[in-house]
Computed example of a mutant assay.
Amino acid sequence: MLKLVRLALTAAILTAIGVRLRRRARMPVQPPAPPAPRAAGRTRMGLVWAVIAGAVALTLGAAMVPTGPQAVSEARAAVYQAQQSAMTVVMGATGKSPAPTPTPTPVEPTPAATPVEPTPEATAVAPTASAVAPTATAVAPTPAATASALPGIPAACMLSGPVTVRPISPRVRAAVNRQWRRIERWLREHAPRTYASLGAPGRAGTVALAEAQTGLEFPDDLRASLLRHNGMSGPLAARFSFGEEQVRGVREIRDQWREDCALRVGRGDPMSRLIRVGTLTEVDADTGHVVASMVRPEPIWPSYHAMLRDLADALEQGRPVFGARATVKGGLLRWSDAR
């Protein structure tokens, strides 16, 4: 609006100057005539100034009357000024520039969701074997109330105890792996088909589960061996064995214990503390001795590691083990009578 007023005043002044110059340009170059009556000059000048005042008044009046676009511009300016004032207040209070407020859009109402009752975290997360800290004290397992009995296996032999992954002595594990490397090297060079039957490494959680389902703690050297090779695979005739003894995996050991348990329960005998690791060989869970209770009562080897060491010696040196000597036929390990 100030610009319009300035333009109007400038136009009026320029008009007056233009009129004065035109009057002077029309005057003849003659000696000055006697002055006209002052009343007439004053009347003409009064008319000129009246015209200028009228033009200014019209211009101001037009500027004061808001047009459509002008009204919109003034409204936008007012809204912008209000937003700037609000932002100034917020910044002064918080010290941060407020985030721009998005234009709200209509949202159709949605039906309320059915509330779900939260379940306790203890029942939502299944415990894993690796998450349970090993304990020194073993908890005696009890018959599983919900376990489905296998055919011919009584409920008393379907144990369910705490699954605990117990640590293995690094020294024992290194010693067991050393003997297995000797056996693997000999089989790879002389009996590659039997070498291919060596089972994949076992899992500590699987071993811990078998311990819970039998109520027995496997000795460290037996567990280390199962973690190296969890039994054998492939055709039965091609599997690695020592003498007539098959090297069993974790599940085979567990299933054999359940069968032996069923026989003992049927006879009214107490549950055995022996872990059947072969056809005849067993490991005493209490002493770690390798025995053959069906043949003789005294131990055959003082430990499972000692049995693996004698087996590696028999392969490398050609000595008999369990009355049999190692031979190779068609890439397969065979045991012949040493006599």
Rank of each mutant, 00 (worst) to 15 (best):
residue 112 A to C: 10
residue 71 A to Q: 10
residue 88 T to V: 08
residue 104 P to Y: 11
residue 105 T to G: 01
residue 74 E to V: 10
residue 77 A to Y: 03
residue 95 G to F: 03
residue 74 E to Q: 07
residue 70 Q to F: 09
residue 92 G to V: 06
residue 90 V to R: 04
residue 97 S to R: 14
residue 73 S to F: 05
residue 86 A to L: 13
residue 96 K to T: 01
residue 89 V to C: 14
residue 85 S to I: 08
residue 101 T to Y: 01
residue 89 V to K: 14
residue 71 A to H: 06
residue 102 P to V: 06
residue 94 T to Q: 02
residue 80 Y to S: 12
residue 73 S to Y: 08
residue 103 T to L: 15
residue 79 V to Q: 13
residue 108 E to M: 02
residue 87 M to G: 08
residue 63 A to Q: 03
residue 94 T to K: 01
residue 104 P to E: 11
residue 68 G to E: 08
residue 109 P to E: 04
residue 114 T to I: 10
residue 106 P to E: 11
residue 104 P to H: 12
residue 63 A to N: 02
residue 67 T to P: 02
residue 83 Q to W: 07
residue 102 P to H: 05
residue 95 G to C: 05
residue 63 A to Y: 01
residue 100 P to N: 04
residue 86 A to R: 08
residue 77 A to T: 01
residue 91 M to N: 15
residue 102 P to Q: 08
residue 77 A to S: 06
residue 104 P to M: 11
residue 114 T to V: 15
residue 65 V to A: 04
residue 94 T to E: 03
residue 65 V to R: 07
residue 110 T to R: 03
residue 109 P to Q: 00
residue 111 P to V: 01
residue 91 M to K: 09
residue 100 P to G: 11
residue 79 V to N: 09
residue 87 M to S: 11
residue 81 Q to N: 13
residue 113 A to V: 03
residue 76 R to M: 06
residue 72 V to Y: 10
residue 73 S to R: 09
residue 98 P to W: 00
residue 109 P to S: 07
residue 104 P to F: 07
residue 95 G to I: 00
residue 74 E to G: 12
residue 64 M to N: 01
residue 72 V to K: 12
residue 92 G to R: 14
residue 76 R to I: 00
residue 68 G to S: 08
residue 110 T to K: 04
residue 64 M to G: 00
residue 106 P to V: 10
residue 67 T to L: 07
residue 82 A to Y: 12
residue 114 T to W: 11
residue 73 S to L: 13
residue 106 P to G: 06
residue 109 P to F: 04
residue 97 S to L: 12
residue 67 T to G: 11
residue 93 A to I: 14
residue 74 E to R: 10
residue 110 T to W: 04
residue 102 P to L: 05
residue 113 A to C: 03
residue 101 T to P: 01
residue 113 A to K: 04
residue 70 Q to E: 14
residue 86 A to Y: 13
residue 94 T to I: 02
residue 89 V to T: 15
residue 60 L to S: 09
residue 94 T to N: 02
residue 103 T to S: 15
residue 95 G to V: 00
residue 100 P to S: 06
residue 114 T to C: 13
residue 114 T to S: 14
residue 81 Q to A: 15
residue 72 V to S: 11
residue 72 V to P: 04
residue 71 A to Y: 08
residue 80 Y to D: 13
residue 103 T to Y: 07
residue 78 A to G: 07
residue 107 V to P: 00
residue 113 A to P: 01
residue 93 A to D: 09
residue 105 T to S: 07
residue 89 V to S: 15
residue 92 G to S: 11
residue 96 K to P: 00
residue 108 E to K: 07
